[in-house]
Amino acid sequence: MRNMVLGALALAALAGCAGSKMNEARAGSPYKTLASDKATLVVAECIQFGWQDESVFGVDAGGFKEPNGAGGFTVYTTGGDYFVDVKSAGAGTTVNYYATEDSMPAKRRLAALATCL
């Protein structure tokens, strides 16, 4: 029981740090903006699933999904270095992808999310 509580507290602390990093990134421009004809939830769940693929991302595999208001979702990695804001746009979906730097891991995350559009 004690280990579960400590694990939950550690996850909450990481989410707080990731949230600050994500808010800073949103103040600037996204790394890439993409569009889809699919429903917002379908796109968000697909991205989350793709980012959890250990065969592609190894130990960095991680994808977490949370509602971000107005029917949208944020899908993010541990630490918030890579994340997407998925929101409804007319009959489709807009995806704003944020990455801390232009690197191969950022490009791999982008390629994985592009398969969901």
Results as ranks from 00 to 15, higher is better:
89 A>Y: 03
106 A>L: 02
113 L>A: 09
20 S>C: 06
48 Q>F: 03
100 T>A: 07
88 S>A: 09
25 A>M: 12
57 F>G: 10
65 K>Y: 03
57 F>E: 06
114 A>F: 03
20 S>H: 10
81 D>A: 03
110 L>A: 05
62 G>H: 12
59 V>I: 09
14 L>M: 07
9 L>S: 06
88 S>F: 06
2 R>N: 10
43 V>E: 00
73 F>Y: 15
88 S>N: 14
7 G>H: 07
78 T>F: 11
82 Y>M: 07
1 M>R: 02
84 V>D: 08
5 V>E: 15
5 V>T: 13
81 D>G: 12
87 K>M: 05
22 M>T: 08
99 A>W: 14
42 V>M: 05
112 A>H: 05
65 K>P: 09
23 N>I: 02
95 V>D: 12
105 P>H: 03
7 G>W: 10
116 C>M: 13
30 P>M: 00
12 A>P: 10
58 G>K: 11
10 A>S: 15
57 F>K: 04
24 E>F: 09
25 A>K: 15
52 Q>W: 09
5 V>I: 08
4 M>H: 05
4 M>R: 04
27 A>C: 02
32 K>R: 09
101 E>N: 01
79 G>S: 11
3 N>P: 13
21 K>P: 14
102 D>F: 06
88 S>Y: 09
99 A>K: 05
17 C>F: 13
102 D>S: 04
18 A>G: 12
57 F>D: 11
24 E>Y: 09
91 A>M: 04
46 C>A: 04
93 T>Y: 07
10 A>H: 13
45 E>H: 13
37 D>R: 11
73 F>K: 04
17 C>W: 15
15 A>P: 13
91 A>P: 06
73 F>A: 00
